[in-house]
Design a protein around this nucleic acid. Structure first.
Length: 351
DNA sequence: TCTGGGGTCCTAGGACCC
DNA sequence: TCTGGGGTCCTAGGACCC
């Protein structure tokens, strides 16, 4: 199977509609104002050369790259381009496409010459959208996904059972898809620092630390094993959430109340568009500077906005008075359609 | 003034039931 | 009386991904 990943996707889309930005350090984030609380969504390769990447505060990014062009995030534009790319992938004969996000997808195609197929895909995407992509080829989803990183930019790389350890064995566990900073540290505390170390680990030794599912999964991940099936089951959202970081921390009770009301309005709009009833609510509160707490509860199934709002306000009543608040988020969980399979998710698609 | 926004899933622990 | 064992449901918290 193949894993297709667009190169510097968001920055590339911006350059497409403003050709004069080609070759310049472009940073996209927030509302494009580096004086605001926001982070970088994507930086062009020129900006990355200064050490700017996704997730770093926009303010810091602007300081590192004084002559950067800083642009606001434009979701609609990226979604439109993304749909064009996915359409190209789906148009390939015999292709099964599992979308992982705006800028990446697994493509299942049977072929004895996958590199040729990959090259054709790259050409087709480029011809239709003027966007470059990198492609990983693998015998499992995990290996294909990890392989893409070695193909960037605009290249192709293959990882299989045969070369997995040779290529990945000496790398740190955090390079694996699904292992982040926290888990890699916990693995290190067990004496496991490299992919080959994880591959050799006895799954039973990981279970006490990570639990029955994650323990077994991490051991598998170390060997690059996992699903070999590209699943194109349409994705059905389990819930919708909205959150806001306030430019100035909120302390006034009336302001906080109003902010929850506004969030609820947005979430209700998203939920109404789905037409499925709400069955749970979670209110996320970041007390300044970075202590995050959640208050949640199941609610009786309802499609009545007033009822949902009333439950949201009940949760809001749990907010500790007087503590400055930096972020509020509200998530609504919906009923799932009867016939929907447990779909694959970006994070867990290797399961 | 350093820290977005939208998602999913797993785990632990308490409540409750038989 | 000094405390079973299995199961489910719920909430809070954690981790990861794009």
């Amino acid at each position: 199977m193949l894993h297709v990943d667009l190169d510097q996707f968001i920055a590339a889309v911006e350059v497409l509609r403003r050709p004069e930005l080609a070759g310049k350090p472009v940073i996209v984030g927030g509302r494009g104002d580096p004086s605001e609380r926001a982070v970088v969504s994507t930086a062009s390769y020129e900006a990355r050369a200064y050490g700017v990447g996704s997730g770093i505060p926009l303010r810091i990014a602007a300081r590192k790259v004084p002559d950067a062009v800083i642009l606001p995030v434009d979701h609609e534009a990226y979604l439109r381009e993304s749909e064009k790319v996915m359409a190209v992938l789906r148009s390939q004969p015999g292709a099964t496409v599992q979308v992982l996000g705006w800028d990446e997808a697994f493509v299942g195609i049977d072929s004895d010459v996958p590199e040729e197929i990959a090259r054709e895909l790259q050409d087709a995407v480029l011809a239709e959208t003027r966007l470059h992509c990198s492609i990983g080829i693998g015998d499992t989803l995990v290996r294909a996904k990890v392989a893409t990183g070695f193909g960037k930019p605009a290249g192709i790389f293959r990882l299989t059972e045969g070369n997995w350890l040779q290529v990945m064995g000496d790398r740190p566990t955090i390079d694996l898809w699904g292992i982040g900073a926290k888990v890699s540290r916990r693995l290190a505390s067990l004496g496991i620092t490299t992919v080959s170390g994880l591959a050799a680990a006895n799954p039973a030794d990981l279970v006490p630390e990570f639990g029955p599912k994650m323990g077994l999964w991490y051991a598998q991940l170390g060997r690059g094993e996992g699903s070999r099936v590209v699943d194109d089951t349409p994705w059905v959202a389990r819930g919708h959430s909205r959150e806001t970081t306030f430019q100035r921390d909120l302390t006034d009770a009336a302001d906080i109340d109003e902010a929850v009301r506004v969030l609820a309005g947005h979430v209700l709009g998203d939920v109404a568009a789905e037409g499925r009833p709400v069955i749970g609510l979670t209110l996320k509160v970041r007390y300044a500077p970075f202590t995050t707490t959640t208050y949640g509860r199941k609610i009786p199934e309802t499609s009545d906005p007033e009822a949902v709002l009333a439950h949201a306000m009940e949760l809001a009543a749990k907010i500790e008075p007087g503590r400055p608040i930096r972020l509020l988020g509200l998530r609504a969980e919906m009923t799932m359609p009867e016939d929907s399979r447990q779909g694959h998710t970006p994070t867990r698609s290797g399961w």
